[in-house]
Design a binder for these strands. Structure first.
Lengths: 114, 114
DNA sequence: CCGTATCCTGTCGGATACTG
DNA sequence: CAGTATCCGACAGGATACGG
């Protein structure tokens, strides 16, 4: 499993990959990078098919890695907004390269860079 | 699951990510990039803990994506060697950046660039 | 040596119901 | 609205045995 490979490799890139590898993760990042900060409900609606559990799990993980921030507004009803951190920008830049490479390899269907 | 997110995103990077996301995949690439072409048995020994099934699965997938090549020598006993393709070099270059980024984030324990 | 085939288990993740 | 708690089925992946 992925966790195993991280321990054995101890290569920093693997740690990052383990984070990005999670289901929906790339898609969440892409939505946040194109739409900007988004509220939980809106995020869930945009990512059609994702379960509440999955979305919160991924967001918690990304938050813990400092890639996504969480802003809680204690109104009634409460509003929680998620967005990309400074850190994430660096990451997205690299993912863009990956995207560019993938487009050259697989044909450039859509240029949905992050 | 990952497959789902690919369909929905249709972003080429996601396709690539799906490939790289597989368990052990990054580790396999790292071993191949640092050790050069390697025979199946040696590969399995270097990647301690991986099962035969897993290793063949990952190699088949990487081969299908044109990232890894397979060279079969019909000697007795047969020798099968795996190595990185030209394509893989481009990929590894980007993964190096990811590695560099990860080192800055998580501290540079070991500089095991691919 | 380099795998494939089969079985079997652990875990991931969806569905549902419920709270501040 | 934004989650948490619980249950449960599917399937990924390990162990084992066997074939070219």
């Amino acid at each position: 499993m992925t966790q195993r490979s991280r321990e054995l490799c101890s290569c920093p890139a693997s740690i990052l990959m383990d984070v990005l590898s999670g289901p929906w993760t790339m898609y969440i990042l892409w939505v946040l990078s194109t739409s900007g900060a988004t509220r939980f409900g809106a995020l869930k609606r945009r990512i059609e098919g994702i379960s509440t559990k999955m979305l919160t799990e991924r967001l918690r993980m990304l938050e813990q890695e400092g890639i996504v921030y969480r802003h809680y507004e204690p109104t009634v009803p409460p509003q929680v907004t998620y967005g990309l951190t400074e850190r994430a920008q660096e990451l997205v830049a690299i993912l863009d390269q990956l995207n560019a490479l993938a487009q050259r390899w697989y044909g450039q269907e859509k240029a949905q860079a992050g």
